[in-house]
């Protein structure tokens, strides 16, 4: 009996080595896991710093322009109305940029707080597209980019009203971000095509550019926040990479789907398909098999 119990507690040298080897392997695997988590943390810190640096540009640049242009207007002589008008136009363009950037930041904050509540109404898609273009056209004009809108509508009539039920401001912000992206990746003097179709209770809107395109491997990270593709110092593309992650999250809220087609140096097209929103069913009939918890 004594021998048996000794056998149970005392391990043979081979058995001990086996356990040590097992622990060593487990330790190695855990170290690897830790390294992977550390890499991810370092990565997210880097994205955060990129984000802050980019944000500074996005906000401070237009803000500085607005300050100096308005100061110039204040100092203008009484008869320089022409100059004042052109400066006011520049102020408006810079302020619109600031408005667009801040709107993305506020909406991202709402989404992250779980407070991006939907406001469903009957809208007209042509008007919504034009509204989105108006919000961003100052950027296109700066780089001589033309935005063409094409509608494919039922009965083949041009500009037939495309009525649809959805959240107007959410869909508009998705489109504005698509357009902003298309402008960024277009070559100066280029063109952008917007195509809208409503069929089978779904709206499909595509924004196509003919610019630099996106590398296939970058497509997986395109919706990450803080991420901006082509983040070289010399890159002409500005932006804090928040826009597309906002577009993706808004599309999720509208139960939509975003698809991207892209080819290097030929351009990209971003498509959003959203189903018609159904009214919230907030009725709760008391009859039937109800259980109380």
């Amino acid at each position: 009996m004594k021998n048996n119990s000794e056998n149970k507690t005392k391990k043979g040298p081979n058995e001990k080595l086996e356990i040590i080897e097992k622990l060593r392997l487990e330790n190695k695997e855990l170290s690897k896991q830790l390294a992977r988590v550390n890499d991810k943390l370092k990565g997210s810190e880097k994205f955060k710093s990129n984000f802050l640096a980019n944000m500074m540009n996005e906000i401070i640049n237009p803000y500085t322009s607005i300050m100096s242009l308005s100061k110039n207007i204040v100092e203008l002589g009484r008869n320089d109305w022409d100059k004042a008008a052109s400066m006011a136009e520049l102020i408006y363009s810079e302020a619109s940029d600031l408005d667009f950037q801040l709107n993305n930041i506020f909406v991202a904050a709402e989404i992250e707080a779980g407070e991006a509540f939907t406001q469903i109404s009957n809208i007209e898609i042509n008007g919504l597209i034009q509204d989105a273009i108006d919000k961003i056209k100052f950027k296109a004009e700066k780089r001589n980019i033309v935005i063409n809108v094409e509608y494919i509508v039922k009965q083949g009539k041009q500009k037939e009203p495309l009525n649809f039920t959805t959240d107007y401001s959410k869909l508009r912000l998705i489109l504005t971000n698509f357009l902003n992206n298309a402008i960024k990746y277009s070559n100066p003097g280029g063109r952008i095509k917007v195509l809208a179709v409503v069929e089978n209770k779904k709206a499909k809107i595509t924004v196509q550019d003919f610019g630099t395109g996106i590398e296939k491997e970058d497509l997986n990270t395109i919706f990450d926040r803080f991420r901006k593709l082509d983040s070289d110092v010399n890159s002409l593309n500005t932006g804090h990479g928040l826009g597309l992650s906002v577009a993706k999250a808004l599309s999720d809220i509208l139960e939509g789907e975003i698809t991207i087609k892209t080819e290097r140096n030929k351009g990209s097209s971003f498509t959003i398909i959203v189903p018609e929103a159904e009214p919230d069913d907030d009725t709760f009939l008391s009859e039937g098999d109800e259980i109380i918890f």
Binding site: K40, S44, A108, I111, E112, A113, G114, T221, F223, D224, R225, S245, V246, K248, A249, D252
Partner: peptide
């Protein structure tokens, strides 16, 4: 999963929030 916004679409974030 570390991608996109940290929205309450995900259980860990939604419950902590």
């Amino acid at each position: 999963n570390g991608q996109g916004l940290t929205s309450p679409k995900y259980g860990d974030i939604a419950t902590e929030k």
